[in-house]
């Protein structure tokens, strides 16, 4: 028996990254804007997405949505009320989604990406694990609710640093929670300089117009 050193230097998650890159190419080729929504459990990802989908669909935009949870299809049933196509991914305990599952669920649902303008992936509620997994999205959306406190971005900098846009949710509760939106925005920019931030309420609709305008501007020009 002989022992020797084998030099490799490869990324541990290279397989996921390769699958994600293929997905991203498919989305781009079909003119689809793909978004990955990440936040802690209870931030209001589903309510925010319900409102976003309803507004997009009312404007004649075509959407497809995958929603990840450890268990139940409750969120998929809620989101389906918006009128867009929705499919639940039950992770059976996994704390994050992986790129391969996205492709598998698109195939299983039989979705034609040519018929989709926006593809939403609602990740498992978790501020740590989803940071490591590229899902082929073009835009990573991190959400933070007024009820969580302004310092969440400083406590979970890795995930916030990976985001392309930040949404503050439940802004209608800001006064009751003594939540300072400017302070929260400053903290987001401390861990991720320069990204756009939208303060919204899915309940009252506050801030949704500005978010929709930004989202619309992300569409590829024909």
């Amino acid at each position: 028996m002989t022992t020797r050193l084998l030099e490799l230097r490869s990324q541990v998650l290279s397989k996921n990254d390769q699958v994600a890159a293929q997905l991203r190419a498919r989305f781009e080729a079909a003119g689809v804007v793909a978004l990955n929504l990440v936040s802690s459990p209870g931030t209001g990802k589903t309510a925010f997405l319900e409102r976003t989908l309803a507004l997009l669909i009312a404007a004649g935009v075509r959407t497809a949505t995958l929603v990840g949870d450890l268990a139940t299809d409750n969120d998929a049933r809620r989101l389906a009320r918006s009128g867009g196509v929705v499919r639940q991914i039950e992770t059976h305990g996994y704390c994050h989604l992986e790129a391969a599952w996205i492709g598998e669920h698109i195939a299983a649902a039989g979705w034609d990406l040519q018929q989709v303008d926006y593809f939403f992936i609602e990740n498992v509620g978790n501020l740590v694990c989803p940071a490591s997994y590229d899902l082929g999205e073009r835009i990573r959306v991190v959400l933070l609710s007024a009820t969580e406190g302004e310092d969440k971005p400083l406590k979970y900098p890795v995930l916030f640093n990976s985001a392309d846009v930040a949404i503050i949710t439940k802004i209608d509760l800001a006064a009751a929670c003594e939540f300072d939106a400017d302070h929260a925005a400053a903290n987001i920019h401390t861990v991720r300089p320069g990204i756009p931030i939208f303060a919204t309420s899915a309940k009252s609709g506050a801030g949704m117009d500005a978010w929709l305008a930004w989202l619309t501007a992300q569409r590829p020009s024909p």
Binding site: L5, E7, P193
Partner: peptide
Amino acid sequence: PSDDIRRGQELDLVSLEIVE
């Protein structure tokens, strides 16, 4: 705050000591 992270995001397999 910097938006240009040069190191510190690695998750790399560098080498293996193998028996043949």
